[in-house]
Design a protein around this nucleic acid. Structure first.
Lengths: 152, 152
DNA sequence: AGCCAACGTTGGCCGTGCCAACGATACACA
DNA sequence: TGTGTATCGTTGGCACGGCCAACGTTGGCT
């Protein structure tokens, strides 16, 4: 209601709008997660392990779009808190096989609830149908980008 | 086409999709702009000055969503290259009145073209109508966020 | 005069996404 | 069998973006 808006060129530029939204989303999500001493990467990792089963850190990184070095740090944190088990693969001793634990699943449920609330807060001006539209459009963009960058 | 996708929880989470898209958009935009030795903030600033006329650095920051300190740096750079004039306001000597120059307008036109191409590249999987939908949805989210945070 | 608020500027902090390098291991092929 | 190439996990670090704190300056209010 200020009456002073951003220039039209920015208000109609997808990359600018996406970035503005991303900054806000990041702030909301980080606040909520840090309140329970969690991190965005923790959620991505737990979700991947829960849905797709145990896998190596490298594949974890590919699935979630994380760098190997960041995966190593996150897995170490999750393993410390027993949300995740990490054992070296007997068939390929370069790999660490990471799997989610029972308490990891409970943790994931907690974070699910937290993040569901946050999404609602972020998209409060949109109807349910519009939120689905937004997700569908963004998903197509993200998958197109993933197709561009062959590996990883 | 890899056949290995991100977990469904991420693929359906708005904040994750927005962030993924933002990272990609930022990479594309930065590449294009740095090729002509420009910066995202330069474009925002020039666009605001062109559309809304001369204004102080503080208002520039409010319009574009930039911090005062960043505005100071950007204006200094643009002034060095004569894309912008900066004079202290005679009526209020705390303020710097910043205005765009003729060569600044030419510069803006160049960046307009560059960024138009980049948006196309980013949203290549979407139709024109879908791109408009996306912009409309995101704009509502951004304006809602701006309404939340009263000042600034 | 006194206090408070806004301005521009400098310096710095922290999180993120990423890269480089290393040792260890697996695999291909001569 | 040996040699080169590739992948893995790990550590350390870099660059950038968004943001905050502090300061001196200036203006408005009472």
């Amino acid at each position: 209601m200020d009456g002073h808006w951003a220039p039209e060129r920015l208000r109609s530029m997808p990359s600018w709008l996406i970035n503005q939204t991303s900054v806000r989303a990041h702030r909301l999500v980080s606040e909520k997660l840090s309140a329970v001493d969690a991190h965005r990467y923790h959620y991505s990792t737990l979700a991947a392990l829960d849905e797709l089963g145990a896998m190596s850190q490298a594949e974890l990184g590919r699935r979630c779009g994380l760098d190997r070095s960041d995966v190593a740090a996150v897995v170490a944190e999750l393993a410390d808190r027993k949300f995740v088990r990490r054992v070296t693969d007997a068939d390929d001793r370069r790999r660490n096989i990471v799997s989610i634990t029972a308490s990891g699943r409970r943790r994931l449920t907690t974070l699910d609830g937290l993040l569901r609330d946050t999404q609602k807060q972020l998209l409060v001006p949109l109807s349910a149908a519009e939120r689905e539209d937004l997700v569908r459009l963004l998903l197509r963009v993200v998958e197109d980008a993933a197709a561009d960058r062959p590996q990883s």
